[in-house]
Simulated scan of single mutants.
Amino acid sequence: MRGLGGAVIMRHELRIIGTMPGSTLLGILLPIVLAALTQGLFAAAVPTTSADGTGGAELAVPGMAVAFAALGVGRPGFAFFRDHAWGTWDRLRASPASTLDIVVGKVAPWVIMSLVQMLGLFAVAVPLLGFRVSGSWPALVLVLLATALCLSVFGALLAAVSRTSQQLNSVSGLCGLVLAALGGALVPLPALPNWVSSVAPALPTHWAVRGLHMVVLERGGLADAAVPLGALLGFTAVFAALTTLRFRSAESKIYWG
């Protein structure tokens, strides 16, 4: 019954996401526009070890994919606040679903949403920007999936520590910007101050960008992406553990629209 309850919650959340196709498309269009505008700037940072024919698009597109996933880190958190605003949270708690089922059912659809947007960005970039992947597409998908999972679980953690939707909005916005900027997604690390290179490995976005660069730029396969994948899964485990420790299903949340 518990697993079934989580599946029902997940389907319901997916239906809600499905009523917002504009948001999904915007998550593809905005990064592709920014990638198109900045690929000339990114071209100067393409490593000399990259595959032949690699240009700025191969650096800009993965960066924008990770950056916008990070900037949207608060989306899973707002799924929890929405139920409090609608008065349906107590019904979820009274259902056969456990707290874990509820959290997984709320977060998993946003993992899928983030993955779809990043894959959509890569697919659109192929004909529009001449983007190409020199390495393994399965490795690319795994890195994107690990990135989506990590950032979505982090979003659940932000919801767990936030009391109001305004707090969540502020904290997620700040965290998303820090993750995108200092992780080397918005701007390549070589173009940033030297101290950023020392801080970047402490952020999951750094490993997401590194994994994508290995696959896209350096002909990488699953073995080459193993370290970034391991780092992303390690961050995910830490975020999940902290969410478990802090999340209180009986704690009321205040939604201010």
Score class of each variant (00 low, 15 high):
residue 29 L to Q: 03
residue 179 L to C: 07
residue 14 L to C: 02
residue 247 F to G: 00
residue 19 T to F: 14
residue 22 G to V: 04
residue 137 W to T: 14
residue 78 F to W: 05
residue 129 L to D: 01
residue 71 L to D: 07
residue 144 L to Y: 04
residue 131 F to K: 02
residue 207 W to S: 09
residue 213 H to D: 14
residue 202 A to W: 11
residue 233 L to M: 08
residue 88 T to F: 13
residue 250 A to K: 12
residue 229 L to V: 02
residue 3 G to A: 09
residue 208 A to G: 10
residue 90 D to W: 15
residue 166 Q to D: 12
residue 53 G to D: 01
residue 85 A to R: 15
residue 26 L to W: 12
residue 246 R to M: 14
residue 70 A to S: 11
residue 187 V to N: 07
residue 168 L to E: 02
residue 137 W to H: 12
residue 19 T to C: 13
residue 119 L to Y: 02
residue 229 L to Q: 03
residue 225 A to E: 00
residue 6 G to Q: 00
residue 63 G to V: 02
residue 247 F to E: 00
residue 14 L to F: 11
residue 196 V to R: 06
residue 206 H to V: 09
residue 80 F to W: 15
residue 136 S to G: 03
residue 48 T to N: 15
residue 55 G to W: 03
residue 145 L to G: 06
residue 189 L to C: 09
residue 213 H to C: 11
residue 236 T to E: 04
residue 39 Q to Y: 06
residue 147 T to W: 05
residue 17 I to Q: 13
residue 186 L to D: 08
residue 252 S to D: 12
residue 149 L to S: 08
residue 44 A to F: 12
residue 191 A to Y: 12
residue 115 L to E: 00
residue 94 A to H: 09
residue 213 H to V: 06
residue 230 G to H: 01
residue 161 V to G: 08
residue 49 T to P: 09
residue 64 M to D: 01
residue 106 K to M: 13
residue 14 L to K: 05
residue 141 V to H: 06
residue 200 A to T: 07
residue 21 P to C: 00
residue 180 A to D: 06
residue 213 H to P: 06
residue 105 G to D: 07
residue 157 L to F: 13
residue 96 P to A: 01
residue 47 P to F: 03
residue 193 P to V: 04
residue 254 I to M: 14
residue 249 S to P: 11
residue 221 G to V: 01
residue 195 W to P: 12
residue 159 A to W: 00
residue 10 M to R: 14
residue 77 G to Y: 04
residue 104 V to L: 14
residue 35 A to V: 02
residue 211 G to L: 02
residue 63 G to R: 02
residue 125 A to Q: 07
residue 93 R to N: 10
residue 150 C to A: 03
residue 129 L to K: 02
residue 251 E to S: 08
residue 160 A to Y: 06
residue 175 C to N: 14
residue 252 S to V: 11
residue 226 A to S: 07
residue 155 G to C: 04
residue 50 S to M: 03
residue 233 L to W: 12
residue 243 T to F: 01
residue 104 V to P: 05
residue 24 T to E: 02
residue 13 E to H: 10
residue 101 D to V: 13
residue 18 G to P: 02
residue 17 I to R: 09
residue 164 T to P: 13
residue 31 P to F: 01
residue 187 V to S: 06
residue 145 L to Q: 04
residue 38 T to I: 09
residue 1 M to H: 14
residue 145 L to R: 04
residue 86 W to C: 15
residue 9 I to N: 07
residue 245 L to H: 07
residue 162 S to R: 09
residue 105 G to M: 03
residue 119 L to M: 11
residue 255 Y to P: 08
residue 170 S to I: 13
residue 190 P to H: 10
residue 136 S to T: 02
residue 235 F to M: 00
residue 210 R to P: 10
residue 256 W to R: 15
residue 39 Q to R: 12
residue 131 F to Q: 04
residue 119 L to C: 13
residue 248 R to S: 09
residue 35 A to I: 01
residue 19 T to I: 11
residue 67 A to Q: 03
residue 96 P to L: 03
residue 120 G to H: 04
residue 27 G to C: 03
residue 108 A to W: 15
residue 113 M to L: 15
residue 37 L to F: 11
residue 78 F to P: 13
residue 131 F to E: 06
residue 189 L to H: 08
residue 123 A to R: 07
residue 175 C to Q: 14
residue 105 G to F: 07
residue 27 G to P: 02
residue 47 P to R: 01
residue 191 A to H: 14
residue 226 A to M: 06
residue 202 A to R: 08
residue 235 F to S: 00
residue 51 A to K: 01
residue 136 S to N: 04
residue 68 F to R: 03
